[in-house]
């Protein structure tokens, strides 16, 4: 029987290693062991608050993954497995989010800009930011400025993350940033994607650029409303 600290550390380990539940065969060296699914449930049953389970168990596990991904120590498949483990744990926290007993750090609205249909980078960003304790609203691909603005209207104070892969659509990214800033000057806009640089970010008036998802998490965590 694990004590609360051990339980939380083991939840973090399950997320970091991508151990979803007892029956999941990955990773092979954790076969037959409880995963994030069972351990989150056990932690709640043991009286650990949902907030502590989230902040000291699930989130730290995903943070390690975000840092390792930035350092090229883990790759897309490992991030995906970690996100699966994270969501297996989060499933048990859902009632606590609904009741307001646990709150997310804020809302992050993401989308690939209008004209661009690529979504791998944007999806990875979503997984890692969600794993950091933020509510992520994914507007999908080919998203016009109006849709981002409508989402901010619905979620006041939300941050926006714009992604693009093509140089062609960097021009649309610029237009979207201008439209958001014109309508909602206080909204913080993060930009990313293969051709995007910090110089480009500065030129188009966005607030933050990161070449990797963890950089976005770090910016968001510094600006919790």
């Amino acid at each position: 029987m694990m004590n609360p600290e051990e339980l939380l550390a083991q939840i973090a380990k399950c997320v970091e290693r991508g151990k979803v539940n007892k029956t999941s065969p990955f990773p092979p060296d954790m076969k037959e062991q409880d995963g994030a699914d069972e351990l989150t449930s056990k932690a709640l049953d043991a009286g650990i608050s949902a907030d502590v389970v989230l902040q000291k168990g699930l989130v730290p596990g995903m943070e390690i993954v975000g840092v390792k991904f930035r350092e090229n120590k883990v790759f897309v498949p490992e991030v995906l497995m970690a996100a699966k483990a994270m969501s297996a744990g989060m499933k048990h926290l859902k009632p606590f989010f609904q009741s307001g007993a646990v709150k997310r750090k804020g809302v992050f609205i993401i989308g690939t800009v209008m004209g661009d249909l690529h979504d791998i980078g944007k999806n990875l960003l979503g997984m890692i930011v969600e794993g950091a304790g933020w509510e992520v609203i994914d507007l999908g691909i080919d998203v016009p400025a109006a849709k981002f603005l409508a989402a901010v209207e619905e979620h006041p104070g939300a941050f926006i993350g714009l992604s693009c892969l093509l140089t062609t659509t960097m021009l649309n990214m610029e237009k979207i940033v201008h439209e958001i800033k014109a309508a909602k000057p206080d909204t913080k806009v993060l930009v990313g994607g293969a051709p995007v640089t910090d110089d480009f970010r500065a030129r188009i008036g966005a607030d933050w650029y990161s070449p990797d998802p963890q950089g976005a998490v770090e910016f968001l965590n510094k600006h919790i409303n």
Partner: peptide
């Protein structure tokens, strides 16, 4: 097809 802004790219 994507939006007109997507030119030749498809989903």
């Amino acid at each position: 097809k994507g939006s007109e802004a997507a030119f030749h790219m498809t989903h």
